[in-house]
Nucleic acid binder design. Structure first.
Length: 202
DNA sequence: TGTGTGATAGTCT
DNA sequence: GACTATCACACAT
C-alpha cells in the first residue's frame, strides 16, 4: 500500500505552478489533496480538509503584514516551499508558500483526515479518539512528525520528505468562513473546509 | 517559549 | 545626531 501510493500518478507532488497563485485560490484547491510525509522509510498520508489563506500587506492577521522579517522571509520566497513555525512556543504549524516570488502569501494546513500510516500517527501523537489525531493545525504536525526542521523544504519535488499530492477526485463541499484564532481581519472569509469531514477543527 | 516592537543606552563621527 | 546593541514586554494564523 505505502509504496503504491508513491508510484501512483495521483500522488506525485503538486507542481510549482499550482502554488503560483493568490493564497485564497490555492487554499480552496488544496481541500481534498494529500499531504505526503516520508520519514525513516515510512510514509504517512493525510487528506486535507481544512486550510486558511494568508496574504502579505493588507492582511492584518498575516505574519507578513508588516513586511519582511527574518522569520517570515520565506513567505516572500518561491511558491511551494514549506513554512513551519512555532506557535505559543509549543505547536509547529505547517504552511505552504504561495504566489510569485517577492509577494508574500501562504496557506496554513489546519486539519487532515488520516489516510495511510495511521499507526505511525498514533505513535507520534497518542490519543483516545482517532478523530483527535489530526483535527487541528498543531495536532497534524505532531501526528506527521513535522517540526522546525521541515521549514523551507521544497514541497514540489518527489525527493522531499514532505509534499502535497493530487489526491482523489472525490466530490466534496467546500465552505468558507472567517479564520480561527486571529484578532484582526476576522471579516475576511479565508478559511476553507470540507463540510462533510469529521476531522475539521472545532 | 520565540518573536517583533518600542524604549533606552551606548558608540561613532 | 545617527546608527547599533540591549532589554523588557506583549502576544501569538
Amino acid at each position: 500500500m505505502s509504496l503504491n501510493i508513491l508510484n501512483h500518478q495521483h500522488h506525485r507532488p503538486l507542481p510549482v505552478g499550482f502554488y503560483e497563485r493568490d493564497p485564497d485560490q490555492v487554499a480552496v484547491d488544496l481541500i481534498g489533496r494529500m499531504v505526503v510525509r516520508r520519514a525513516l522509510g515510512a510514509i504517512v498520508v493525510g487528506r486535507i480538509v481544512e486550510v486558511e489563506a494568508y496574504f502579505g500587506e493588507g492582511d492584518p492577521a498575516s505574519h507578513a503584514c508588516r513586511g519582511m522579517t527574518p522569520r517570515n522571509a520565506i513567505m516572500f520566497g518561491r511558491a511551494g516551499m514549506a513554512y513551519v513555525y512555532l506557535n505559543y512556543g509549543v505547536h509547529c504549524l505547517l504552511n505552504v508558500v504561495t504566489g510569485l516570488e517577492g509577494r508574500a502569501g501562504a496557506v496554513l494546513i489546519r486539519a487532515l483526515e488520516p489516510v495511510s500510516g495511521i499507526e505511525i500517527m498514533k505513535k507520534n501523537r497518542p490519543v483516545k479518539k482517532s478523530v483527535d489525531l489530526t483535527s487541528g493545525p498543531g495536532k497534524l504536525t505532531k501526528a506527521l512528525g513535522i517540526d522546525l526542521a521541515d521549514n523551507e523544504v521544497d514541497m514540489t519535488v518527489p525527493e522531499s520528505r514532505l509534499y502535497i499530492a493530487n489526491g482523489t477526485l472525490e466530490t466534496r463541499t467546500v465552505k468558507a468562513s472567517p479564520r480561527i484564532g486571529i484578532s484582526k481581519g476576522e471579516d475576511m472569509l479565508l478559511r476553507f473546509y470540507d463540510e462533510g469531514s469529521l476531522f475539521v477543527s472545532k
